[in-house]
Design a binder for these strands. Structure first.
Lengths: 202, 202
DNA sequence: CATTATTTCTATAAGACTATAGAATTACGC
DNA sequence: GCGTAATTCTATAGTCTTATAGAAATAATG
């Protein structure tokens, strides 16, 4: 009934989170059963409750796992004294690399988190807002430095970057044959210069 | 047991599709029960089966409703002899306006269609592919005309437009206070020119 | 008004799902 | 090897869900 704090337990719990992430990503939170998750992990349905007190807690853990280190990385990017271009490239890289590494969990965070009750969503919401604000800050700083036009709507720009990254992240998760670095390169380029310029005015 | 083909029946069936779209958009396909849909429509659970033979068919109808006229509009845009900029603006406008008009159904199409069995997805997949190919064609034509740089990856570009529109469409559905035309304007501008240029080089 | 067709309702069968309790098994320390 | 703790299993209660069948109600027609 009670959980030890041994590294062994923690390790298996992590496996359980990964298994839940994989199943939630494939079937959605409500479409996935605890039997599915357990069998992905190689145990029986009832045994899963040794690691999660409820299916909902499993979702919460997956979401937290998916977004963890995410804000942290953005903090570092925002604090770095780089050109806007470098910061944007770093942002896209961090975002899409996350999708590649713990792809299912991040996808679950984006698609299923709103099925958590308000209370359990607060922490996630704070992390997400903070992330967006940091990105927005990168834009406003670049405008102040004169690297971007003064008329730019930074809130809109940040949302667009996040949206585009998530869209491509979804494609990356689904189509594993995609070259992530190629996507990073092209997406950064489009965001910076748009489709318009004849040759990239390097 | 058998359905009439009266306009009255068709009208109520449309209401049922809209009700299903609203509930699916809010709770997801698996999270929504037929009781939810029925009560949204103001009838009892069992009565719903007068209009749908199964919950799955309801999802199929919602998805088809969501994407209907969608490809058609893109056909028109692709056939029109306009500048690339005008065509891109028209595409973004059509896409986001769809979200505004029958917002829930299009959202459901994007988020839940993959829960349909392979067979029922074929038609949707064809429509989606056709849509993307038409958009891709607009890009290749613009490259041929010299309006866009020859090095542009048109497949990538089309996916990015669709992804960005869907991302903003989701935000529009969730936040009803957003000014759609402002989003259309800004998104088109970013896609065309990127964040970079100091003033928009009209 | 009476007859028929349409629409909705009630009741229920059959199955799936979450979560719990206690037994069985496996791993660990000595 | 033995005793104890950690982990997994079996079995099940209780709830919810989809879909069906037939009765009841409502609307349409002559």
């Amino acid at each position: 009934m009670q959980h030890p704090d041994s590294p062994k337990y923690q390790q298996q719990k992590l496996s359980a989170i990964r298994a839940a992430a994989a199943v939630f990503a494939r079937k959605g939170y409500h479409g996935a059963s605890t039997t599915d998750i357990a069998s992905e992990l190689g145990i029986k349905q009832g045994s899963l409750y040794y690691y999660f007190s409820s299916k909902e807690e499993a979702l919460e853990q997956v979401c937290l796992f998916g977004i963890r280190d995410y804000v942290q990385r953005m903090e570092e990017i925002a604090a770095s004294e780089q050109s806007f271009e470098a910061q944007l490239m770093a942002t896209v890289t961090a975002h899409l690399s996350s999708y590649r590494e713990k792809n299912e969990a991040l996808k679950v965070h984006n698609d299923e988190r709103l099925y958590l009750p308000e209370i359990k969503r607060i922490k996630l919401k704070q992390m997400g807002s903070h992330y967006r604000e940091l990105l927005e800050g990168i834009f406003t700083a670049a405008v102040d430095r004169g690297e971007l036009r003064a008329s730019l709507d930074c809130h809109f720009a940040a949302q667009t970057v996040i949206g585009a990254c998530n869209a491509w992240g979804d494609l990356i998760v689904r189509d594993h044959s995609l070259d992530v670095f190629e996507v990073i390169q092209k997406l950064t380029d489009v965001l910076l210069f748009g489709f318009r310029p004849q040759p990239a005015q390097a």
